[in-house]
C-alpha cells in the first residue's frame, strides 16, 4: 500500500485500470447481460446509449457482452505467455551465468539468432505452418518474447555473478545450483518482474495485431483484436463496435506501462517488440 501511495498520479491511474481489467477478465462472462454469440437486435452498428450500452456489432450482437467475454483472451493468454517467456528466459539466463564461458557463448549466440526474427514475422510463419489455435498462439508469443527476457536476465545475472558475494560463495565451494538460485536469483527478481509487465504489454499488442489480421483467436471465440477486425466495416459510420474494443486494448497496455514506469521510477524502457 505504501508503494501505491508514493506513486505519481499516472501510476495510480495505471494501477486502478489494471485492477479493473483483471476484474473484467475474471468475471466478465458472468456480468454480460447477453450471451456473446446471441444476435439481439435487427439493427447493426447501433450507437452507444441506445437499448444496448455499447451498441450492436455487424450482425446485431451486443458489443458490451462481447467485450466482457473477449477480455479474458486478451488478458489471460498474454499473462500466461509473458509468465512462460520470463521464467524460461530467467532460468536459461541463470544457467548461462553460472556455466563456463563456452556454454554461455553458445546459448547467447542462439538467442541472438532467435531475437533477430521479428516477432510478427515469426508468428506469421508459425501460423502458416500450424494453423491458428489458442495453444499455438500461447506458444508463439511465449517463444518469441523469451529471448528478449533471456537477454535482460543474463545482463542482470552476469552483473550479479561478478559481485564479491558470489565469489565468496564460490570460494566456499558452493554448487552452481546454489549460486544461481540463492545468491543470484533474489537480486534479479525485482527487475525481472518489471520485465514481465513489459512483456505482457508486448504480447497483448502482438496477439491483438494477429487477431486483427484474422490470424489470431479464431471464431467463434473472439478477443478484443478480433472484435476490431470483424467490425471494421463499421468504421465508415464511426460505429462503437470497432472503436471501443480498440480503445479497450489501448487502456490495458497503457495502464500496465504507466504502472511499471512509476514502480521503476521512470527507468529506461526496453525496445518494443524485443
Amino acid at each position: 500500500m505504501k508503494v501505491i501511495k508514493s506513486m505519481p498520479l499516472s501510476g495510480k491511474l495505471g494501477a486502478l485500470l489494471v485492477v479493473f481489467w483483471v476484474f473484467i477478465a475474471i468475471f466478465g462472462p458472468w456480468l454480460a447481460p447477453h450471451s456473446a454469440s446471441e444476435i439481439v437486435a435487427y439493427d447493426v452498428f447501433e450507437p452507444i446509449g441506445g437499448d444496448y450500452v455499447l451498441g450492436t456489432d455487424y450482425i446485431g450482437r451486443d458489443v458490451f457482452s462481447r467485450l466482457l467475454d473477449g477480455t479474458r483472451f486478451t488478458i489471460f493468454i498474454p499473462l500466461l505467455a509473458a509468465a512462460l517467456a520470463c521464467s524460461a528466459g530467467t532460468l536459461i539466463a541463470l544457467f548461462s551465468a553460472v556455466s563456463g564461458p563456452r556454454t554461455d557463448e553458445v546459448i547467447a549466440r542462439f538467442m541472438d539468432a532467435l531475437i533477430s526474427i521479428p516477432s510478427k514475422i515469426f508468428s506469421l510463419v508459425m501460423i502458416a505452418a500450424f494453423g491458428s489455435s489458442v495453444p499455438l498462439l500461447l506458444t508463439i508469443t511465449a517463444v518469441s518474447y523469451m529471448p528478449g527476457s533471456f537477454r535482460i536476465a543474463r545482463a542482470l545475472a552476469v552483473n550479479v555473478a561478478n559481485m564479491d558475494f558470489v565469489t565468496v560463495a564460490r570460494t566456499r565451494g558452493e554448487s552452481r545450483l546454489y549460486l544461481a538460485v540463492k545468491e543470484i536469483l533474489p537480486n534479479i527478481l525485482h527487475p525481472m518482474l518489471a520485465d514481465f509487465g513489459l512483456r505482457f504489454v508486448f504480447v497483448v499488442l502482438l496477439l491483438s495485431s494477429l487477431s486483427f489480421l484474422g490470424l489470431g483467436v479464431q471464431p467463434p471465440e473472439a478477443d478484443l483484436g478480433s472484435l476490431v477486425r470483424e467490425n471494421i466495416s463499421g468504421l465508415a459510420e464511426g460505429a462503437p463496435a470497432v472503436i471501443i474494443p480498440a480503445i479497450a486494448i489501448a487502456t490495458i497496455t497503457i495502464a500496465v506501462n504507466l504502472l511499471i514506469d512509476s514502480l521503476r521510477g521512470g527507468a529506461t524502457y526496453a525496445a518494443r517488440g524485443k
Binding site: D164, F165, V168, T171, P186, N187
Partner: peptide, 15 residues
C-alpha cells in the same frame, strides 16, 4: 581458506 574482500557493499548479498 577464507577470503575477505575490500568492498563490503558488494561482498554481502543485499537480498
Amino acid at each position: 581458506i577464507q577470503m575477505v574482500f575490500q568492498n563490503a557493499d558488494t561482498a554481502l548479498n543485499p537480498a
